[in-house]
């Protein structure tokens, strides 16, 4: 199934929730509004022609620079981008979904951006979302057990955010 037809179908089904797409990129992607991600994923998995039953990966990408000059040079609004790589074991095709999130919820620093969890669709999302929460700081609403997974439970900060600073000390161990 070509990228265009997938996009068409999704737009027909979800309308405004599909906020953008780039079908000419090396890996063509479709951008989905953060509130609609769960329904879109459920549709993608259930749809007979798409059958995207396999969630490969969820990645959180942080677009930010603590240096204002570089931030300007970056050419992007500061935001957090979630990338869902999906594929189908039956139809052998793949799809990339992107979700654009603010870096902080309501721009209040320290409040994690929120997003519906897709654990009810793919069980594998459980750990992937925990990892994204742990490293990129995104709060998945509806996740059954959102804890840190790679960092210790009492770790402070989200290491893959661009403004992250390594703590000076962790339980008596020098950090920097």
């Amino acid at each position: 199934m070509s990228g265009e037809s997938v996009l068409e179908r999704l737009q027909k089904q979800f309308g405004d929730a599909i906020t953008g797409a780039n079908l000419d990129a090396i890996d063509p992607w479709i951008e989905v509004a953060s509130t609609a991600i769960e329904e879109v994923c459920r549709y993608l998995k259930a749809d007979n022609e798409l059958q995207l039953d396999y969630l490969n990966c969820i990645t959180g990408v942080d677009y930010f620079h603590s240096d204002p000059k570089k931030l300007q040079k970056m050419g992007e609004e500061p935001h957090t981008l979630l990338v869902y790589h999906l594929s189908s074991t039956a139809k052998k095709h793949t799809l990339v979904l992107k979700v654009r999130l603010p870096r902080w919820k309501d721009d209040r620093e320290g409040d994690l951006p929120e997003l519906p969890s897709v654990t009810s669709i793919w069980r594998t999302a459980d750990w992937h979302e925990r990892e994204v929460y742990d490293l990129s700081g995104v709060w998945f609403v509806g996740h059954p057990d959102l804890r840190r997974i790679l960092c210790p439970e009492d770790w402070v900060g989200y290491p893959l955010r661009r403004d992250y600073e390594m703590p000076l000390e962790y339980h008596g161990i020098r950090g920097r």
Partner: peptide, 16 residues
């Protein structure tokens, strides 16, 4: 941005 998975011995190893 590119994503690719290969069939490593232990399964699909993907890099993004």
């Amino acid at each position: 941005d590119v994503y690719l998975e290969t069939e490593a011995p232990r399964g699909q190893m993907g890099f993004y």
